[in-house]
Design a protein around this nucleic acid. Structure first.
Lengths: 215, 215
DNA sequence: TATGTAATGATGCATTTGCAACATTTTACG
DNA sequence: CGTAAAATGTTGCAAATGCATCATTACATA
């Protein structure tokens, strides 16, 4: 995956951050990153450490929406950062975060600075990747039944790796979250698929026993 | 909304398209645009005319996913253009489409050409906007019940315009599609909300009678 | 303006799903 | 290695939803 400072030297990185009037903050483990951000319209960069985007629903259930590692960015996917459902939490001590005002990025006229142009190009590529991811998820979630969601997910994953195997990225619980369905209902449907001989499940590996043109 | 050729003169536009080795095609009304695209990894621009991204489900039901007008782009949201569910159809005679290979955009090293840099910056801004839109929709669709989806949608729309009124962008049928729910089930739930005195519906205008901090 | 087409509103019914609850297994970590 | 926490598997049941169908209304356009 493209990283935000790709093709930008350490020296130019310093110049870039100065040009964009960025601000750096350091967070300790389990502290809120969003609470220190005043503006709604920023892009954040994890300069060091690790953080997570967390969604808390009205029942108090917390879900990890995204994991943010070094040079990952945030602030592009959440339409309004000022949203009581979301927070970004540092998950390591001394997690360093760079905050840049979105308008500073857009209104900068230094078109002759190659490091600035590289930065925008990296941003573009990252967003392009994210957009495809989101769209993939939308394609799955908009299917009507749990069975169709599972089969669509399997189909996409198997084609991605050109194999009839699908490996869970995390746990079944996380998959249910991703598909936005109830976990036990998902387990129930997985059992149906197993019983009908369509899939085989062994640990985190799901084997597709039907032909879905995954070649 | 940002357009793809913002801040690029007509002369520079010609230079840009040459630099990126773009190809132009003309389509007549109701013809498929995707069928002429060989590669999976392109960005398309509607240079003239009007087209629609259409999704056909396995029952043969067609849904308009997106409307493409002059200077709108496509190819960024569909993870795999080679997908039997989707097609892009010209909806006017003489609809002109510019196709650019994604790799040509990324691998171009002409960092000193300001029109190229503007182009990338425009792409970035367009994708940023689209990403927020997709995320907004995901936030709505991942709600468990139809009621919660409707209320989340109303909440977002009312806050966007700072008013207790929400105006339908199209029809109720289209809204049901957007929310990925059954239309009649949506009507049923809207009736419930009306009966409980939470909303008032008059034509395409929905009034929120509860306080949702839309100020 | 007339007429066909699309949108809306309504409702019975079968199915799907979420929820709650619990037992069992796996995993993480002091 | 032992223990607590997390994940998994299962199931009954109630609630939510999709589907089919039909009547009515709004809309577009010839």
């Amino acid at each position: 995956m493209i990283k935000i400072f790709n093709q930008i030297s350490a020296q130019n990185k310093v110049k870039l951050l100065r040009l964009l009037k960025s601000h750096s903050f350091t967070f300790q483990n389990e502290t809120s990153i969003l609470s220190t951000v005043k503006s709604d319209n920023i892009i954040g960069i994890i300069a060091q450490g690790y953080a997570e985007i967390i969604r808390t629903d009205h029942n108090g259930n917390e879900t990890v929406i995204e994991q943010l590692e070094k040079e990952d960015i945030f602030g592009t996917e959440i339409s309004s950062l000022k949203n009581d459902e979301y927070d970004i939490i540092a998950k390591e001590n001394n997690t360093e975060v760079i905050i840049i005002d979105y308008n500073n990025i857009i209104n900068c006229k230094e078109n002759n600075k190659s490091f600035y142009n590289e930065f925008i190009k990296n941003l573009f590529q990252i967003l392009n990747f994210k957009l495809k991811e989101k769209n993939e998820r939308l394609n799955i979630i908009t299917k009507k039944t749990i069975r169709d969601k599972l089969l669509e997910y399997f189909s996409i994953e198997s084609k991605k790796h050109g194999s009839s195997y699908v490996y869970l990225f995390s746990t079944f619980t996380a998959l249910a979250d991703f598909l936005a369905i109830d976990r036990s209902a998902m387990t129930r449907e997985l059992k149906n698929l197993k019983d009908e001989g369509l899939i085989e499940v062994k640990g985190k590996r799901i084997t597709l026993l039907y032909n879905d043109n995954w070649i």
